[in-house]
Design a binder for these strands. Structure first.
Lengths: 116, 116
DNA sequence: CTGATGTGCAACTGCAGAGTTGCACTTCGG
DNA sequence: CCGAAGTGCAACTCTGCAGTTGCACATCAG
């Protein structure tokens, strides 16, 4: 499978970025957190945990995962830590998908020419 | 967090689909498999495992995960089982991302109006 | 038929993620 | 200064996934 193969010619974001990014998005709780932060604005871990079924610590871990993926950023305000969404990495995900789908299209095109 | 909250008004694909989809894409080996199937065309698990460091069984499991996410389909040819890419689900992922990024844009717009 | 090739199934190990609990530390309000 | 609110850190359990191995079953070529 030629792992560590080449990444021949394109601004591939070190693959690891895609791992951590897709991995962060794979959890429904994390997507909910992102959506809530988007609709309700920046919030603290305690606030996010308040209504829900999760412990504050559990929420904190999710926030750290999301931040590790570059999807969140935090800033202190006194004793509070507010998290906000930084959706730039999503462009990375879309790039991979578009590139992949593009290869598929090209393949389809080739097949169409041959089999027609 | 109000899990099972609302999914207010949009053809959201049951959330579970996003789980399994993003989860499938989160593994670099699986992405490599998809890319290879796209560039080299349909192949069997044995063929995919041949050059690489993974066992055939490991590859089979990855193929099953990808197929479970709707990204692959298989067809028998005698004693062989060939897998091919079916990238339609990728549109689902892009939809979620675009919707999410869209919310962010709207939020930005709101903030711009208020703070300006 | 027989061996070789290709799959399928099941059990097992190892490890990382999700979530919890308990406690210490910092900061704000009165 | 003192209590309350908010965070941070660490240990612990539990479950699921990745990967392996071993073996049985199906299929093709000679």
């Amino acid at each position: 499978m030629s792992r560590t193969a080449a990444t021949p010619a394109s601004p591939q974001p070190t693959a690891g970025a895609l791992d951590v990014l897709f991995g962060a998005l794979a959890d429904p709780t994390r997507r909910q957190i992102v959506e809530r932060l988007l609709t309700s604005g920046p919030a603290t871990a305690t606030a996010l945990a308040d209504g829900g079924p999760l412990t504050r610590q559990a929420v904190v871990k999710h926030l750290q995962v999301l931040e590790g993926a570059g999807l969140l950023a935090h800033e202190r305000h006194g004793r509070e830590v507010r998290y906000r969404v930084t959706p730039e990495p999503l462009a990375t995900a879309v790039s991979w998908i578009v590139d992949t789908a593009g290869q598929w299209d090209r393949r389809l095109e080739r097949l169409r020419k041959v089999t027609k």
